[in-house]
């Protein structure tokens, strides 16, 4: 069993507006990058604030590096927690140089050497004497990372660290950050609301919704085998097709589909269908018809109306061109089993 770096149990935090937690539990394994993803207002930032210690939960406990930080009897202030934090707006101290920012959390005689080592790690060796306002967004990001990692925290928290970068820088910087975290073997919780970013950054992904964790697992699992309808919606463009479970599979209006989820024969279910699993081909005899074509550069996304009046989306290579109003045959070609959920309606 691998060592647990952070353990949150039954965290409750009540707010009048958004961001509340209701009984959230989460474990982070030492040395992993856990990507925490969820829509805004789901309480991601609240969770980070509880772990750093700038806010107190109403109930529940938090352990970091095997030490109890929060419990009904105990509350450790932020400065004693050994939890590093990279803020969304970087929060660099504007009156201190790059080197002084990094040195702020360090102690001991070899402070200067540690600062130099951190600067080298983040690739900013020549920047020691610059002031924060003289740096680009990506550079500020790396200084914030170096500053947070300097004191060798038990866990590093990153709160939407790439949201202030433009999309060009974003891909570049996130590659760098991932490499730096890997190189140093740090344990990290990475918060985002972009599914692509979560899939790229996380060794594991935790999906948070309405104040609790819906699913934790490796990226392939969470994407391919969503545990709840919410996870299926949030992690990809998903349509839901109603159907009935038979001995051979789930019978839907576009045919028999195979499902992984444990359901019983006779259950009414909804099958989660992603656009890349749906193929279409022109067929004058079909009752399904193409409504619109959305051109996205490398691919086309077709919106198709099924005979029942329901809509389904199909992702095709950009070379496949079908005009709107063309009747099409809808084929499922997933090459894997699909997730399905008991139909609550």
């Amino acid at each position: 069993m691998s060592e647990i770096a952070v353990r949150c149990e039954g965290l409750v935090k009540t707010f009048s507006d958004t961001g509340a937690l209701n009984g959230l539990s989460l474990d982070v394994v030492k040395g992993e990058i856990l990507a925490l993803i969820g829509p805004s207002g789901c309480g991601k930032t609240t969770l980070l604030r509880l772990i750093t210690g700038v806010a107190k939960p109403d109930a529940g406990s938090i352990e970091v590096g095997g030490r109890v930080m929060v419990s009904p009897e105990r509350f450790v202030p932020p400065e004693f927690r050994r939890v590093g934090m990279v803020f969304q707006n970087y929060a660099l101290f504007p009156h201190l140089s790059v080197a002084a920012n990094i040195a702020y959390g360090l102690h001991g005689a070899d402070k200067d050497d540690q600062v130099a080592a951190m600067l080298q790690l983040v690739g900013l060796s020549g920047y020691a004497d610059r002031m924060p306002n003289e740096l680009s967004g990506g550079e500020q990001q790396r200084v914030a990372l170096a500053r947070a990692m300097g004191p060798r925290p038990d866990v590093l928290l990153l709160d939407e660290p790439f949201s202030n970068l433009d999309s060009g820088q974003r891909v570049h910087v996130r590659n760098e950050v991932r490499a730096i975290l890997r190189m140093s073997g740090a344990t990290a919780i990475f918060v985002t609301h972009h599914q692509e970013e979560a899939l790229f950054m996380g060794d594991r992904i935790a999906v948070q919704h309405q104040g609790s964790i819906q699913q934790v697992g490796n990226p392939g699992d969470v994407f391919g085998n969503p545990a709840t309808r919410f996870v299926a919606t949030f992690m990809g463009e998903t349509d839901f097709l109603p159907g009935e479970v038979t001995a051979e599979g789930v019978q839907t209006e576009i045919g028999l589909l195979q499902s992984t989820h444990p359901v019983n024969v006779g259950d009414q279910v909804e099958v989660a269908v992603r656009a890349d699993d749906v193929r279409i081909a022109p067929d004058p005899t079909s009752g399904a018809i193409v409504l619109t074509r959305e051109y996205r550069g490398m691919v086309n996304v077709y919106r198709v109306r099924l005979p029942s009046g329901r809509f389904i989306h199909s992702l095709q290579r950009h070379t496949v061109r079908i005009a709107p109003a063309t009747p099409v045959r809808v084929l499922m070609d997933p090459g894997h089993e699909l997730a399905c959920f008991i139909n609550s309606n």
């Binding site: 750093t52 210690g53 700038v54 202030p77 932020p78 400065e79 004693f80 927690r81 939890v83 590093g84 934090m85 803020f87 969304q88 707006n89 929060a91 660099l92 101290f93 504007p94 702020y104 959390g105 500053r147 947070a148 300097g150 004191p151 925290p153």
Partner: peptide, 15 residues
């Protein structure tokens, strides 16, 4: 002063 600047200083071990 953004509150996160003061929080950053707290997480870096200052009271």
């Amino acid at each position: 002063i953004s509150p996160s600047i003061e929080q950053a200083a707290r997480t870096l071990g200052k009271n």
